[in-house]
Amino acid sequence: MTSIHVKPLFDTPTRQQKETESRAIAADLERFRKAGGRIEILGTTPIDKTGISRWQVVEGGADRRKAAKGEKA
């Protein structure tokens, strides 16, 4: 398939723009680390669904938010 057959997307970044942005992010991270910054990489621990419903997962912090605002649960 050639470029004649592909509909161009005008709002997507080019490969060169992506590479430039990638190099800028890498440089920012390097400066951050050299300045003593640390990056914590979080795991992908799934939610244990055996004792909690999907609704409770979604609405889990509702009671705490209401308590912080002084509302009754």
Rank of each mutant, 00 (worst) to 15 (best):
L42E: 11
K66F: 15
E71G: 04
A73F: 04
I41H: 09
S22R: 08
D11L: 02
V57H: 07
P8I: 03
K66C: 11
G36E: 08
E40N: 03
S3W: 11
I39F: 12
G36N: 09
A26Q: 13
D63K: 06
T44F: 02
L29M: 09
K34R: 15
A73H: 04
K7N: 01
I25M: 11
Q56M: 07
E59A: 15
A35I: 03
L9P: 02
V6P: 00
I41Q: 12
T44P: 01
R54S: 02
V58Y: 06
A68N: 11
D11H: 12
W55N: 00
I39Y: 04
A62W: 10
V57W: 10
A35E: 14
T2C: 01
H5D: 10
T50L: 14
T12Q: 12
D28A: 06
A68M: 12
Q16W: 09
K69P: 13
D11Q: 09
P8F: 08
G43Y: 00
F10I: 05
E30S: 05
I25L: 05
L42D: 07
T50H: 03
Q56I: 01
V57T: 06
R64D: 15
K18I: 06
M1E: 10
G70M: 14
A68Q: 15
R33F: 04
G51F: 00
W55R: 08
R38D: 01
E19N: 11
D28I: 02
T20Y: 09
A27R: 04
G36A: 10
E19G: 03
A26V: 05
I41G: 01
W55A: 12
R33A: 01
W55P: 00
M1V: 12
L9C: 10
W55K: 11
Q16D: 11
L42T: 06
G70L: 07
A73C: 09
K18Q: 14
G36Y: 07
G43R: 10
G36V: 03
G60C: 06
T12P: 00
L9I: 01
K66S: 12
K7R: 10
K72L: 14
E59M: 09
E59P: 00
E30V: 07
T12G: 05
K34W: 00
L42W: 04
E59C: 13
S3Y: 14
T14S: 15
T2D: 12
G60S: 13
A68I: 14
I52T: 09
R54I: 08
R33H: 06
G51H: 06
K72M: 10
G60K: 08
L9E: 08
D48P: 01
H5V: 08
I41P: 02
